[in-house]
Design a binder for these strands. Structure first.
Length: 785
DNA sequence: CAGGAGAGGGTTTTT
DNA sequence: CCCTCTCCTG
């Protein structure tokens, strides 16, 4: 996020509201409970707000900012408010503005760690050997660079993947280790060349005038550690510091905060140790557990009144998280009515699970078993790993249930977006070698490996960037054939576009269009006959449209390198599908938690790599999942699942055994998962027809839900057998005729040109001709979306 | 040098 | 199973 406000904001007078508020009672304080109020009104000194799920943490945090402005005498530019995600930053900005009753343009230092560090680093880049216009590499660029280094060092990429090295280096950066400070214990990393390659990588980044994500924090910590005067200056500037999601901070972020808070100790950290789910990324729960030691005299405030979930949901979540040893401990309570118990259901396999959830969602919309009707956008499916999403997508595509995947492939990670961005980058910074490499032969200009070798050689010889090397190579006639002219033209074009950007004429949106058109990039996709080409052109158009919100290309590049979300707010109600990680901070009236099987959740890998702490983090993930639900929470598991195309059977998650019986309604016949509660072991899942009467009589298994399930199972009978499935598919195809206009969620609308078995040939209007399976297609006219 | 076929590898989680 | 990368052919 790029905000145009600069230091001038700091010197502005008090906001009008401060004077206006002076005598009157502050309405925003009246809305707070006593604990929240304490956290808001304790303005001086260190404060730790331990805020359980759904306890009004954001409200307290924003009220605190407003309170600082109104009565603390803080000017907007004197408050440093850091969040973890862009979404959280945006939300906080909005809510502060709302509470203040006017715009929040005067809060220049409210943002993510990364965004704030970019701003700081641009000002002081030269202190770490960079120029202010450094580029920020994404993971892809980072990997490419590391791959080069690994190869140059003579490593076999197969045995020593650059990916692995990237992970090691990231871990070092998360711990604020510069190459010279790598702990001796890590000397053996990456076949004992880890530290050396790390140093090379950092040197290379400096040459390229580039940083990666980790560097943003790392460089700022280095700068503050080595330039006391500068640190002192910022300590005076940021009189008050607020930190959201403190449990997610890594060591570098922790050091950064400690340095800045070092003088006045006016730091307020908000977090929940029970929701620390980013340990794998370097987050240190220890940071929050240790807060009182780090800041002696800290006021610790516990927010325990939950405004979100029913008592059943809270009780279940509390029981699960109680299984963790290392936690500060909180007791959530609520004044809400008890509502529905959690629901637990087992399935034969993953597809059955997806099918059941789909059907359940359908009936929930009309109101079922005495519950109120739920809208689609009140419902979310939260999975452990993103590959679980596919089963649901497949199923919902088939039945036409509108859904939205949150955190899927990100806009800016797409090929065409990255290419376009590379063009913009090389125009704005001609020394951006990575961008040059990316676009030099895209579209094809007849510049293959050989030509690139020559360019690299010349650039190295003259000690200039690749683009300049290319210019020299052309001048000296060292590129053969057609490539020579094309390369010369490219170099000239880039220079010309750069001049246009400098003159600000034409506007940057137009310029972006010109670059993409004149480079031949747009044309490349226009001539591409693959089905996804039209979509890519759409994306490029969208990219140019997004430029509208920015002053210039430079600002836009910044934005894209830090911000990842592209919310598709098309207004239509949809079920949300996302990972548990992506769901943190969100809430939904009804939540489905599928895939609760040992190995999947808790993830085998977490347990293997991190042992008990790993398992505890998984348990926190379970806690986060359950507490996302306001009214209804449905947990499910499948006995069998296809992994890498192979069938695997698994046992129900151990977390299921930790659910308190009194708060759970079991929709599954016990034969399916080996019983619940007393003596519940991990028996292998039995077949569906294992239902037995004894179970049906047991209290808790005789619920309306269970009877419904039984009915469903009987009605469906053997429809799941492979033979039956094929018949269904043929029937599906049979309901279409050639020439009929149909709709496909991915490809859009188009007429059927041929039918073979269950496959339809459709000439999609946007995506072009494609063969699709009949059940992914619906009749074109009256589709709900 | 470009485009297609085949093999191999990868699934946590993301700023 | 699906995607990416590599090798081979035209």
């Amino acid at each position: 996020m790029v905000d145009k406000t600069d230091d001038s904001a700091d010197s502005r007078g008090l906001p009008l509201s401060a004077r206006a508020m002076g005598a009157r009672a502050a309405p925003y304080l009246d809305q707070l409970n006593p604990a929240q109020r304490e956290a808001v009104e304790t303005l001086e000194g260190p404060v730790l707000m331990l805020a359980g799920a759904g306890t009004g943490k954001t409200r307290a945090l924003t009220a605190r900012i407003v309170h600082l402005l109104n009565t603390g005498g803080a000017r907007p530019g004197e408050i440093l408010a850091v969040t973890f995600t862009n979404k959280a930053a945006r939300e906080m900005k909005e809510r502060v503005a709302e509470m203040l009753g006017h715009g929040v343009e005067g809060m220049p230092w409210l943002g993510t760690f990364h965004a704030i560090c970019v701003r700081l680093l641009r000002r002081h880049a030269e202190l770490v050997g960079l120029k202010p216009n450094f580029t920020i590499l994404d993971t892809d660029d980072q990997l490419r660079l590391l791959r080069q280094l690994v190869q140059a060092a003579g490593f076999d990429e197969k045995r020593w993947p650059a990916r692995h090295l990237a992970g090691i280096i990231d871990a070092w950066k998360n711990r604020a280790c510069t190459p010279d400070k790598v702990p001796a214990a890590d000397a053996g990393a990456f076949n004992r060349h880890g530290p050396e390659l790390y140093a090379q990588y950092q040197a290379r980044l400096r040459e390229l005038n580039a940083v990666d994500f980790g560097d943003l924090l790392l460089h700022m910590v280095t700068i503050f550690q080595t330039h006391e005067d500068l640190l002192e200056q910022y300590r005076r500037r940021f009189r008050y510091i607020l930190v959201d999601e403190y449990q997610d901070t890594n060591i570098a972020q922790y050091l950064w905060l400690r340095l800045l808070a070092g003088g006045h100790h006016n730091i307020c950290c908000v977090g929940d140790d029970d929701q620390s789910i980013y340990g794998w990324r370097g987050a240190e729960v220890g940071n929050i557990l240790r807060f009182e030691k780090d800041f002696p005299g800290a006021r610790v405030v516990r927010l325990e009144q939950n405004y979100r979930s029913t008592p059943h949901i809270l009780a279940a979540a509390s029981a699960v998280i109680a299984g963790n040893q290392s936690r500060l401990g909180k007791t959530l309570w609520t004044e809400l009515d008890s509502g529905e118990r959690l629901r637990l259901i087992g399935h034969w396999d993953g597809e059955e699970e997806a099918r059941w959830i789909g059907e359940e969602i359908e009936s929930m919309q009309g109101g079922t078993r005495g519950m109120r009707p739920f809208d689609l956008d009140e419902i979310a499916i939260l999975v452990r790993a993103s590959h679980q999403m596919r089963a649901f997508e497949d199923r919902f595509l088939t039945t036409g249930l509108p859904y939205r995947v949150i955190g899927g492939p990100r806009f800016y990670e797409r090929l065409e977006i990255r290419d376009a961005m590379a063009y913009f980058r090389i125009v704005m910074s001609p020394a951006d070698d990575l961008a040059f490499e990316r676009i030099v032969n895209t579209p094809k200009r007849g510049l293959g490996d050989k030509a690139r070798q020559v360019i690299r050689g010349i650039a190295r010889e003259h000690n200039v960037p690749l683009l300049e090397g290319a210019r020299i190579a052309v001048e000296q006639g060292m590129i053969k054939g057609k490539g020579s002219a094309a390369l010369g033209r490219l170099a000239a074009d880039i220079a010309r576009w750069g001049r246009m950007a400098g003159e600000g004429e034409p506007g940057h949106m137009e310029l972006a269009g010109i670059i993409l058109d004149e480079s031949g990039y747009t044309e490349m996709w226009q001539n591409d006959k693959s089905p996804d080409a039209p979509g890519r052109l759409e994306n490029l158009k969208e990219l140019v449209n997004q430029l509208d919100a920015f002053e210039n290309l430079q600002g836009f590049l910044e934005h894209v390198s830090l911000v990842m979300d592209n919310d598709q707010n098309d207004g239509a109600a949809r079920v949300s599908i996302m990972t548990l990680h992506a769901a943190k901070g969100l809430e939904f009236p009804a939540v489905f938690l599928p895939g609760w099987e040992d190995g999947l959740f808790p993830s085998q890998r977490s347990m293997d790599e991190s042992g008990i702490p790993g398992l505890e983090e998984e348990r926190r993930l379970a806690y986060v999942g359950i507490t996302r639900a306001r009214e209804l929470c449905t947990i499910s598991f499948a006995g069998n699942r296809r992994v890498f195309g192979q069938w695997q059977s698994s046992m129900p998650s151990r977390f299921i055994d930790e659910l308190p019986e009194a708060h759970v309604e079991v929709l599954t016949p016990p034969g399916l998962y080996g019983g619940h509660g007393v003596g519940a072991g991990h028996t292998a899942p039995a077949q569906e027809h294992d239902l037995d009467d004894r179970a049906a009589q047991a209290d808790g298994y005789n619920s309306p839900g269970w009877r419904r399930l039984q009915q469903r199972l009987q009605v469906r009978g053997g429809a799941d057998a492979p033979g039956a499935r094929q018949v269904l598919d043929l029937e599906a195809a049979g309901s279409f005729v050639v020439g009929q206009r149909v709709f496909h969620q991915k490809f859009g609308y188009g007429p059927i040109t041929a039918i073979e078995g269950d496959k339809l040939s459709v000439d999609f209007e946007k995506a072009g001709p494609k063969k699709v399976v009949a059940r992914y297609v619906s009749a074109g006219e009256d589709v709900p979306f």
